[in-house]
Simulated scan of single mutants.
Amino acid sequence: MSKTFTTADVAAHNTVEKGLYITIDGSVYDVTKFVDEHPGGAKILKRVGGKDASKQFWKYHNESVLKKYGEKLKIGTVQAEAKL
Rank of each mutant, 00 (worst) to 15 (best):
G50I: 04
K68Q: 07
T23G: 09
G76N: 04
E71M: 08
Y29G: 00
Y60E: 00
K43D: 12
T32N: 03
L20S: 01
D9W: 07
I75V: 15
E37N: 10
N62F: 09
K33L: 12
E17G: 00
V35L: 07
S64D: 13
M1T: 14
G41C: 05
W58C: 06
K51R: 14
L20V: 00
A42W: 10
S54Y: 03
T6V: 11
Q56T: 09
V10Q: 02
H61K: 03
E81W: 12
K83W: 15
F34Y: 08
E81R: 14
T4V: 15
E71Y: 09
V16S: 05
K67E: 12
T23M: 05
T4M: 12
D36Q: 13
L20H: 03
L66V: 10
D36L: 10
E81T: 15
G19N: 05
V16F: 07
K33C: 10
G49E: 04
T7A: 09
G41F: 09
R47D: 13
A11F: 06
T32Q: 04
L45S: 04
H13D: 03
V65A: 14
G49D: 03
V48H: 13
T32A: 00
V35F: 06
R47K: 15
W58I: 05
Y29A: 01
A12P: 11
G76Q: 04
V10H: 02
A82L: 15
F57P: 08
E81S: 15
F34D: 00
K51F: 12
A11D: 05
E37V: 09
T4D: 09
A11N: 03
K3V: 12
T23H: 00
G76V: 05
E17A: 06
Q79G: 15
H61E: 00
V78G: 10
M1A: 15
D52W: 13
G26N: 02
K74M: 08
A11I: 06
H38W: 11
A8G: 04
K68R: 07
K68V: 03
T7N: 14
E71V: 06
A53Y: 05
D9V: 02
N14H: 11
S54W: 00
A80K: 15
N14R: 07
S54K: 01
K83G: 14
T6L: 13
V10M: 07
V65S: 13
G49L: 05
D52E: 09
I44F: 13
K3R: 15
V35Y: 13
I44K: 12
T15Q: 05
G19C: 05
V10I: 08
Q79W: 12
E37S: 13
L73K: 01
I24A: 02
V31F: 02
F34P: 01
S54F: 00
K51I: 08
I24H: 03
T23P: 06
N62L: 08
I22E: 00
T77A: 07
